Structures are given as C-alpha cells and as structure tokens.
Amino acid sequence: MTLTARYPLTLRRLRRPVLSLARVGDQALFSVKALAYAPFAAVHHRRETIRLIAEISMGAGALAVFGGTVVIVGFLTLATGGTLAVQGYSSLGDIGIEALTGFLAAFINVRISAPVVAGIGLAATFGAGTTAQLGAMRINEEIDALESMAIEPVSYLVGTRIVAGMIAITPLYALAVVASFVASRFTTVFLLGQSSGLYDHYFTTFLNPVDLAWSFAQALLMALTVLLIHTYFGFHAAGGPAGVGLAVGNAVRTSLIAVVSVTLLISLAVYGANGNFDLSG
C-alpha cells in the first residue's frame, strides 16, 4: 500500500501550503504578463478598450440605468460622507467642539473614506462582472478559440481591461471625492444647522492638496490591484457554471482584503508616525 493511500488526509494537509504558495507565484506571473501586455492592448485593441471604458463607468444594457460603477460609487460615497458628518458632529458636540466637523470631512474623506469606498465599489461592480465574463468565456472555450486564431488572450481580454480601468478610475474617483465632500457639507450645514462659513473655514484650512494627490495615487493602485485579482480568477476559472460562481466569490473576497491592505500600507508609507498633520494654532 502506498503512502498516499495509507495517509491521504495527512498528505493533503501537507500539500495545502505548497499549493497555496504555487498559486501565489502563478498569480504574480500572470500579473506581470498582464501589465506587460497592457501597452500593446492600448495600441492594437483601441475599440475594445473604449467599449470597456464605457462599460466600467456606466454599465452595460439594463445595468446602465442603476448599476454602473459611477452610480454605485456615487451613492456609496454620498452615504459615507453623510454618515461621517452625522457621527462627527454628534461626537464632537459631546465635548463642545462640533465646529471641527469640517476638519473631519477634509481629513477622513480624503485619507480613508473615499479611497476605501471607491475600491469596494469597483470590486463589487466591474471587478465581479469581469470575473464572471472571463470565467464564462473560459468554460465555453472562447479563450481557447482566441488562441486558435493567433490572438493573445491575455492582451485582448486582460490588458484591455487594465487599460480601461486605469483610464476610468481617475474621473470616477474624482466623482467619489466630490460626492463625499458635498454630502458632508450638506448634512452638516443644511440638516444639522451649522454655519456654512464656520464649516467652510475649517474644511478649507485642513484640506491638504498633498493628501488629495496621495489619495488619487492610492485609488489608482487600488484599482490596479482589484483588476489584476479579478482578471486572474476569471481567466483561470474551471468547473462549469459552479466554478465561475466560486471564482467570483474568491475574487471579491481577495479584492476586499487587498483594498484595506493597500489603504493600510500606503497610510504607513506616506503618513507613518508623523501623519503630515498639525492641529495647533
């Protein structure tokens, strides 16, 4: 009797870390290949890239009315900005400094709230859709058909989506930041009754353009990470329709972890112990 037949459970547990490490390496190689093909896709597959930009921003078909990434991210950031204003005004009011609600809107929206919400919205809309699309193409052998026609599938399917996502994320994130600022100001001034001049004074005082630039850089890196994760899981889906659903679930879980991890790492790298912040004066 072989060792595999005698101790199947033990050997399976021993192989699990090795297989996990192999998957990490495979995903890293796939990401490098996709990034290498992205410039080629931008030049030679312009029509597909433009179509994907429209699909990312406004959605496709019936989803264009209410399910596009612009709509989802807009609603999420509006709700987050309003909640931040309500909680900030109430909590600061307990110690008599509710005038600093504008400071919270300028500080937390830029550094934490808007990037995380935009990343989650991108993963839940375009990311999940990308995994499902590529997974369906894989199990229907459409990716193999592209290879048979001498079309590089990573360039046509993955590179175009990366280029489209990086182009669409900048105006999309600008909309998210503006929506969070508008929601915070509207809630604080019109619903909670704070003076508009007082709110605007603290908001403009603590809105740091450098922080805003780092926030955009964080959103770009977050979008690139989400796109690489979802395209990998979709491109390597297997097991029929059930396998596609499993790939979508794994991709969404992984991308959500990546979103908060990118936020943490960039916050540590950019702000660190100093924080680039001074409340004195």
Rank of each mutant, 00 (worst) to 15 (best):
F40T: 14
G239I: 03
L265Y: 09
R46H: 09
T4Y: 06
I257E: 02
A145F: 08
N109L: 08
L212I: 12
G243M: 08
L122V: 15
T77P: 03
L63Q: 12
A213R: 07
T83Y: 11
F66N: 13
V260I: 15
I108F: 14
L146H: 14
A114I: 10
I266Q: 05
V110S: 00
L265S: 05
F103G: 00
E142C: 04
A62P: 00
T231R: 05
L3N: 12
V116L: 15
T131H: 05
A223N: 09
N250G: 08
V65C: 10
N140R: 10
T2E: 09
G135W: 04
G88M: 08
E55S: 15
A36D: 04
L228D: 02
S196Y: 01
T204F: 03
I143W: 02
A123F: 11
F66M: 09
S267H: 12
F181T: 09
G59V: 09
A145P: 06
L122M: 15
K33W: 09
R13L: 14
A28M: 12
M137V: 07
T231Y: 05
S57H: 12
F107G: 05
F277C: 04
G272R: 02
I97Y: 09
R46S: 07
V182D: 00
A150V: 15
G102D: 03
R13W: 10
V43Y: 13
H230M: 02
S90F: 08
